[in-house]
Amino acid sequence: MLARNLPWLTMSKLKRREAVAGYVFILPWLISLLVFTLYPIITTLYLSFTNYTVVQPPVWVGLENYQTIFFNDPSIKPSVYNSVYYTLLSVPVGLILSLLLALVLNMRATGIGVYRTLFYLPSLVPPVAATIVFTVLFEARSGLINSFIRSFGLPAPAWFADPNWSKPGLVIMSLWGIGAQTLIFLAGLQDIPKSLLEAAEIDGANGAQKLWYITLPLLSNVILFNLVMNVIGSFQVFTQAVVIGGTTGNPMESTLMFMVHIYRNAFRYFKMGYASALSVLLFVVVMVVTLLIFRSARLWVFAEKDENA
């Protein structure tokens, strides 16, 4: 096939040798692209139109799986609701808090490097371990958090034991890991030219004005990056939800995330066809949402060349 390529024939011997070396270097990745990306994507798409329980070969059922998703699966509603709820709450709150934290860590203070390091430490804790620690902290009767709340004479929720409070609990837990995000914001803050802020100061801008008119616009591309990464990540949240609620989303399906629903269909019920259809759907939703965010970026992400004149 390569021999039919015109440039290949007209190449000098030296260039041809370089090209051969090039293919050898990227060979593992070529195999990976075929075996671990291209083939699986096509197969997932194909399987989503079949009934496949592993023991027997897949049977073509057309759009039946998609029909089931939209009309006949009672777990779809709670799992979509939970994932959307979690995303809509954890992403904005996480973004705002990590931005505030980055502003705090950008202050000039002695030993600031130590603080920056300490904030990152929680991100090192493996998700399973972190979630288990939070089940202890959020324990309904005598966990640390409820003991604290009760010490003010306030009523304390049962968190992961209460379907109304399990998702807020998950969101609060996710905030513990915003250290990496904060460091990305911090790097963005440090890239903002000091001269701009000083110029604004001379013009009489106060702190809030500097933040709103200079810092945030210059940071908007970093905000976009973190936003997109977080949305993609939180739509696919799995580990924390499974550790809290198992594969049934305890209590009362309140922690049944979409990804958990995919997992149990594939590996508990062995409905590979149906799980593939769910996967395709999640993929399409994530892609569309990402695209919409990038579209909206034209409105709120600052483009340097326009206003620098």
């Binding site: 990745w29 692209l33 075996v35 671990f36 990306t37 083939y39 699986p40 994507i41 197969t43 997932t44 399987l47 592993v54 993609i232 696919q236 990804m259 995919i262 594939a266 590979m272 799980a275 593939s276 996967s279 395709v280 999640l282 993929f283 994530v286 892609m287 990402t290």
Partner: peptide
């Protein structure tokens, strides 16, 4: 390769498991 960056694991893991 760059396009591959945007493909979440969710659309590939079932066939890889079956493989």
């Amino acid at each position: 390769t760059v396009a591959n960056l945007m493909i979440p694991g969710v659309v590939t893991f079932i066939p890889i498991f079956l493989l």
